[in-house]
Simulated assay, not measured.
Amino acid sequence: MDLHVRYEGDDDPKKCTARKLARFDKAVLHETARATPYGVVLNPHADTALSPADADHGRLVALDCSWETAGEAMFEIDGEHRALPFLVAANPVNYGQPFQLNTVEAFAAGLCILGEREHAERILSKFTWGHTFLELNEEPLRRYSECANSAEVVAVQDDYLADED
């Protein structure tokens, strides 16, 4: 699965996981929406959840920008837009926060859901805290990856959200 990033460059370069992935040739950065290739776009504003049914696309696309600027308009990227289900961040900036994943965590989550756990482990291995993301989210990632479609992923997510209340 190819990983592509629509890169805004508005985060601290030292903490930018997309830049680090690009340095290790694990992802390709694109500076415009037009230059960003078509694929499954990880978009928290999407109406459809990512599911194993999306595995045949062959390309994941993420937007790398500050959470403060990650409004719906920023996601004007061609592709099949999918939202990631409930997961908890392990990165040092947002540790323990639900739905506050950084770029590498979003890619790793997507890869796990799409049945590419080893690929997720490889990209996370570049970060000292990377294994923690998989440990914190072990059960939900496994359950999401066993779903057939978006509706089933949402049903599993609902189990976790009910537990949060």
Rank of each mutant, 00 (worst) to 15 (best):
3 L>P: 03
3 L>I: 04
4 H>E: 11
7 Y>W: 12
8 E>V: 14
9 G>P: 11
10 D>F: 02
12 D>K: 14
13 P>L: 05
14 K>R: 15
15 K>E: 15
16 C>T: 14
17 T>E: 10
19 R>I: 12
20 K>E: 10
22 A>S: 15
24 F>G: 08
24 F>W: 14
28 V>K: 15
28 V>T: 15
30 H>A: 01
31 E>D: 12
32 T>K: 05
32 T>H: 00
34 R>D: 13
36 T>S: 01
37 P>Y: 03
38 Y>T: 05
38 Y>G: 00
41 V>K: 05
42 L>N: 13
43 N>W: 06
46 A>W: 06
46 A>P: 08
51 S>P: 07
52 P>A: 12
55 A>F: 02
58 G>T: 02
59 R>L: 02
60 L>P: 06
61 V>L: 05
62 A>I: 03
63 L>W: 03
65 C>E: 06
65 C>W: 03
65 C>M: 08
68 E>A: 11
68 E>P: 01
69 T>Y: 11
72 E>P: 06
74 M>R: 12
75 F>Y: 15
75 F>D: 05
77 I>A: 03
77 I>H: 03
78 D>N: 13
79 G>V: 02
80 E>Q: 06
81 H>F: 14
81 H>Q: 11
82 R>F: 05
83 A>N: 00
86 F>I: 04
88 V>H: 10
89 A>N: 09
90 A>Q: 05
91 N>A: 04
94 N>L: 05
94 N>W: 09
96 G>H: 09
97 Q>W: 02
98 P>A: 15
99 F>R: 15
99 F>N: 12
100 Q>W: 04
101 L>M: 11
101 L>V: 10
101 L>E: 06
102 N>D: 15
102 N>R: 12
105 E>Q: 12
106 A>I: 01
109 A>D: 11
109 A>Q: 11
112 C>I: 02
117 R>T: 12
117 R>H: 09
119 H>G: 03
119 H>W: 00
120 A>K: 06
120 A>D: 07
121 E>G: 02
123 I>A: 06
123 I>V: 15
123 I>R: 10
123 I>W: 02
127 F>D: 12
127 F>L: 14
128 T>Q: 12
129 W>L: 13
129 W>Y: 15
134 L>Y: 07
137 N>P: 09
138 E>M: 12
139 E>Y: 08
140 P>M: 00
141 L>E: 02
142 R>N: 00
143 R>M: 01
143 R>C: 00
146 E>Q: 13
146 E>N: 08
147 C>R: 02
148 A>G: 14
148 A>W: 00
149 N>M: 01
153 V>L: 01
155 A>Y: 01
156 V>R: 11
160 Y>V: 08
161 L>Y: 13
162 A>F: 09
164 E>K: 08
164 E>A: 13
